[in-house]
Design a binder for these strands. Structure first.
Lengths: 218, 218, 218, 218
DNA sequence: GCGTAACCGAGACGGTACGTCCAGTCTTTGA
DNA sequence: TCAAAGACTGGACGTACCGTCTCGGTTACGC
């Protein structure tokens, strides 16, 4: 079975690709993911439907790549701006500037989470991110790609910072950083996804405090 | 504007309602939410499409009520069967039996979370709960209903148990229980929704330990 | 086969019957036959749908009886007005006042056809008559009833008048009156039904002249 | 307002068009016009419903064109086969071969009407012609198209033949041929449409005789 | 420099499901 | 005890998109 003759990627129209990304992202932001149709993306991008289906397998796939591209671009811009404490273009796509390490773990985490709060409240990110997350909840294949390409690389930065804290003796050695990070990242994620509570700096600060020092009296 | 004449609910067919719930739940479990169509629900329920559209506004709406009904029923059964020793959930069954209070907070939380793990791994709950959560992520109106009717009541049980622990001096007085509970509930929710990690008893036990005693050395 | 339990006609509501007739005729006149629905008739008549289905088998059936009733009524009124040369209530329902017999066949026929022209141009008759005729073209069963109850009784009057003219020696003895009448009645009918030409007094007068004296030179 | 972007007719699928015509005609012949649904036509033609709605506005419109096409085809075949000696019809086949002119008007008309009788009794023509005529009675727009495209061209042939007879002195000069032809054509049409009498060669022969020589004694 | 291959915009195609409308039947309720 | 009201199953309607399939046209590469 050789189902797909595999189109020649070298002859691909860069202009069309960009136009499709832009159309997909703007449509999702405007009318929402479910009402965004492949036909509408093609029309807005000034592109034939076949040009979409030639390179992507579904609406979700287009949006996923469009969003990855957006993330990459944003990261690149951020990289140029803040210069120094970041890397980019390592194939995992994303704005993974390392978490700062001032020696004060709580302060560093609070700073990063505050930046995340800003991002979550920016509709430019909110709409497509929400749409892709929702699709991933129900479409495991897409979900795994989304997590692997976008979410995990971010989480890995927390793992790194926590390990550094362990080396410095600020976090117990027997703590698994991959689980530990969920104590402050997941609550924020859930509030964002399910509207189960307000998203504020105070809130994320509190999460960090609770997570680091526990609920039980010392 | 009163566009809809509003059908007479007293004359509603109970048989049809039940058949529609059953059809919706079984179809979602079998073919997934996106491939579940209103027509298929009607066909399987042996019902005219109009009977669905007369009482619900969308596929999501049907499934929401079907799932609420399922949760209620499950709760009722559980209530009769086990009287007192009860499960709780994260966006799943609508059972409002209180979390046990043996005096050992860690043990009580671990027990309840283990029950939740069981539920999340049961496809009977997983499929519709996942579908509704995904829909709620993207459709705020439905999301809010879902949260208010199913999720919040469950979370309130944790609030109650944590307050009791505060009274017993096992949790710091300055901790906000509504936020505290997210430290162990949200990570589980995220792993479930986004497949970001395995869901096991070990994992939830660890979450409780981390949350109660913190990451920093004592 | 006793398919229908046959409702008790003696307990039938006369008021409902009249209201249904009125509703059916007015709706056909207003929105046309195809857009006239049983539900709309019931609603306008302030009657349950079942009350219609109890006594009639279809929309066409209702309209047929409504129209027969209208014709009967019109005939009765005409009878009272013109007093003397008419009969009524003989079970065949209709306005079959006999064709006048002044001894001048051409003049008598022209007068009657002019009256028919007036009727055909009156929308009160045109809409339902056209609807029923169209239905009868395609639904033979209804068509035969329509012809038997309404059309044939009318045509019989021409037969009678033509026979009288034969007795007076104004029409050839070997002419079949049932066919002869079609020479002036059918052209008018076709123009009305198919809009194949204007319908005027001049036209019907001409038809009578052509039919009586032929096309060939004398 | 130009609501419809108007599809590109040059890219239209000839195969689909033919399949739709065939399906429409066969369904009307089999189950009758009212029970013929657009969905059934599409299914039998192996075509999507949208392909029908893209090119036609309604079931009636499809059948009209299908029938016009059939008439044209029949005419073409007849033209090739019999060359010169041709049929004419009443609202049926679109063959514009002239009525024969042997010098004997009565004989020529009788021959043509006998051919028409044959056609009216052929179910292949009867079902769709009847359906379209009925629709045209109630839907004036379609009726006018039907008359203009099919009926009038046929009638014009009679006009021509009658004019030729006038030149030959066989018909009075003061007779209007367009009205005269109705004396024998309309009665046949009415008997066919409304089942008001048998349709035979004898009948049409009689009509011609009555029309040419009149009812009054000579 | 000239085919020729393939991508491109465009959009018609066979389909599926939508949400609405109405037919004809069945059930409840008030007079 | 009947009829009004209207919910019910069923199924066609006309629409919106799906994903596939031509159709010219326009590159851009290999000979």
């Amino acid at each position: 079975m050789v189902s797909k003759p595999a189109p020649d990627a070298t002859r691909r129209s860069e202009k069309s690709r960009r136009a499709i990304y832009a159309a997909a992202l703007s449509l999702v932001a405007e009318v929402g993911y479910p009402k965004t149709t492949v036909e509408a993306i093609a029309a807005r991008a000034g592109v034939g439907k076949q040009t979409i289906y030639r390179w992507w397998s579904s609406k979700a796939d287009v949006l996923l790549e469009a969003f990855l591209d957006l993330a990459e671009q944003t990261a690149r811009e951020a990289g140029h701006d803040t210069a120094g404490q970041d890397r980019a273009g390592d194939g995992t796509a994303g704005n993974e500037a390392a978490i700062p390490d001032t020696g004060d773990l709580a302060a560093d985490l609070k700073a990063v989470l505050r930046a995340t709060v800003d991002e979550l409240l920016d509709p430019r990110f909110d709409a497509p991110a929400r749409a892709l997350t929702a699709e991933g909840v129900v479409n495991e294949q897409l979900g795994r790609v989304f997590v692997a390409r976008l979410l995990e690389p971010q989480l890995q930065l927390y793992v790194d910072r926590l390990r550094s804290a362990q080396d410095a003796g600020h976090v117990r050695r027997d703590v698994d950083p991959r689980i530990a990070l969920e104590l402050f990242v997941s609550p924020l994620a859930q509030r964002w996804l399910q509207h189960t509570g307000p998203i504020t700096y105070d809130y994320t600060d509190t999460l960090v405090d609770y997570a680091l020092y526990g609920l039980a009296p010392r």
